[in-house]
């Protein structure tokens, strides 16, 4: 392959939040992602993931982290790596090489999804307007991931800090979910929640 010109890449969404919000919402400009499937308990899988990301296989519905790289539990046979955009092809290559003959699948899916950060004391209330999930403090812990829906959009919710969540959905629905989050984060609507 000839050299790539990464300056030609565009973010899923280039937006700034409207005024009058009671929680912070932002669209994360870029995020590398690798979808990895296989037998999560297989020694070859565990070793390949460790080698490629520095992370252990997360417990069910949890995530693990090493530096800027996080591994999210997606299903009984699937994890998702969050990394810097541009790092994904290297992780795929490292994982596949280390996995050798192990029956696995690793794909760079950095451009398939959009990621939003929702933060603030009422952040969980914003998400609870459309996600049928108990996100209340004390019920949903930092590092936990939940795949669910927000309104009618399939979404993943990761708690990244005390009052901070990352939300991801397919890129084609990014504009919809962004607008939905901005409405839900309205200060007046959060004032009595």
């Amino acid at each position: 392959m000839s050299d790539l010109d990464l300056s030609l890449a565009r973010a899923a969404l280039d937006v700034t939040p409207p005024p009058g919000l009671g929680a912070q919402v932002e669209a994360i400009a870029s995020r590398g992602m690798v979808a990895i499937r296989g037998d999560l308990t297989d020694a070859g899988f565990v070793a390949a993931l460790q080698a490629a990301t520095g992370c252990a296989v997360p417990e069910i519905r949890q995530s693990t982290q090493a530096g800027d790289t996080r591994v999210l539990w997606m299903s009984t046979d699937e994890v998702m790596v969050f990394c810097e955009w541009g790092a994904a092809p290297g992780i795929v290559e490292a994982f596949m090489e280390k996995a050798g003959d192990t029956h696995v699948l690793a794909l760079d899916v950095s451009d398939a999804r959009a990621v939003f950060r929702v933060s603030g004391e009422k952040a969980w209330r914003v998400l609870a307007k459309g996600a049928p999930v108990d996100l209340a403090p004390g019920q949903f812990g930092t590092g936990e991931i939940r795949r669910t829906r927000i309104a009618t959009v399939a979404a993943g919710i990761v708690k990244t800090g005390d009052d901070e969540f990352e939300v991801f959905c397919f890129r084609s629905l990014a504009a919809y979910l962004w607008n939905w989050l901005c409405v839900g984060a309205g200060a007046e609507s959060l004032s009595d929640l």
Binding site: K129, A151, F170, S172, N179, W180, V183, G184
Partner: peptide, 18 residues
């Protein structure tokens, strides 16, 4: 309906070139 009205009534998928 909740907040799912107007442009939020139904999500439409858009390509990057929308």
């Amino acid at each position: 309906a909740g907040q799912q009205k107007g442009s939020l009534f139904k999500p439409f998928r858009q390509t990057a070139l929308h």
